[in-house]
Design a protein around this nucleic acid. Structure first.
Lengths: 200, 200
DNA sequence: GTCTATACCGTGATAGAC
DNA sequence: GTCTATCACGGTATAGAC
């Protein structure tokens, strides 16, 4: 509103730096010294913006969780078969993962050593549970093959989607377009890699 | 040969304890104090068996890598189409992951902060590369669908398989049989989750 | 909002007795 | 092979000047 932007940190801008370093070195492997070097300010200056290292973690995983739970709100409002909703959620998960890549990456890597980490893991489990229910509904409607356990299928689809954080890079950096990835994930998960003629 | 087994540690038995703790708390999040508590011996006693924390990591990831590269030796000797070899490798990867679960888990989680971690990541990339070549061969033989990029497909299959370490527990602990999991992975990867009648 | 200086504690690792 | 005692260092976090 008033002052022209100065080149100084806010908790928000500091967060993007911290998350990048957390993902490079791991949360436990990152010291406040590492963060201060990466941000170009001293350790004490960081404490001016946040109460400590764990607050940075909390802010980051919150952002990731908000994105993921937002998908469920959308899917809850959608019509059609359960399978269609599952495909929609799968596609949107890919999009949220790629859009919020560093934040989701961090979320998927927390181990549970601190209270914040355990909270993050619990919320994540909630999300997984909600998606598992959708797949179960699709199976009940007879749209999923019966020779693969539903719970097992859920785990595997999650594994495939979540693995994006290990290698996905934005198109600007020479990576795949997020739609291309979402298409590939949905095709692989629901129709498989084998050519159509070889099926049956 | 001579003495009856005493209840004392060897580098080997100590390793299994260390790997468990590493996987629970993360490598960086594990202190020698944590290890000594878990092993029931003092910190200095650990140093009698190994030169330091990093040696435990090196031994663990070596074991995992040996298991994985062993698959390539088997596959290299096999006959048949490239697709058949890919399916075989996929199945064997699931088996090695489940058989050597704690060791592979640790391998898949290293971040690259130390020399040992970077070495492990490099060897892992080698393995991924070798499997990617197999998929490429299967694609060249026309057995993989053309509307999913081969490199992308490789990443996704790896993601699905590797995600096992996040949730798989041995059948004795109430988990799935490893064959059941391998079947599910191969079915999902190559034929998809959708019921056959819905295909086309 | 950023800095220097520092408190205080847990870390990986070692010395040397038993 | 295991222990207690100890070291030097780096960790998170704080105090107080500018």
């Amino acid at each position: 509103m008033t002052t022209p932007r100065r080149d100084t940190y806010t908790p928000e801008t500091l967060l993007s730096v911290a998350v990048r370093v957390f993902n490079e070195r791991g949360y436990d492997g990152t010291s406040m010294e590492h963060l201060s070097k990466a941000a170009g300010i001293s350790k004490s200056s960081i404490y001016h913006h946040v109460v400590g290292k764990e607050e940075l973690l909390r802010r980051a995983v919150s952002r990731a969780l908000d994105g993921l739970f937002g998908i469920l709100d959308e899917a809850g409002a959608a019509r059609g078969t359960a399978l269609a909703r599952v495909e929609y959620v799968t596609r949107r998960m890919v999009e949220v993962l790629t859009d919020e890549l560093p934040y989701v990456t961090l979320l998927l890597r927390v181990r549970g050593n601190t209270r914040t980490e355990r909270w993050a893991m619990e919320r994540r489990r909630e999300f997984d549970q909600r998606v598992a229910e959708l797949l179960k509904a699709a199976a009940a409607e007879g749209d999923l093959r019966a020779d693969v356990d539903t719970r097992l299928a859920t785990r595997l689809v999650f594994g495939m989607v979540n693995s994006l954080v290990e290698w996905y890079r934005p198109p600007a950096g020479g990576g795949y377009d997020r739609t291309q990835v979402a298409d590939a994930v949905v095709r692989l998960a629901f129709d498989g890699l084998r050519v159509q003629s070889a099926r049956g």
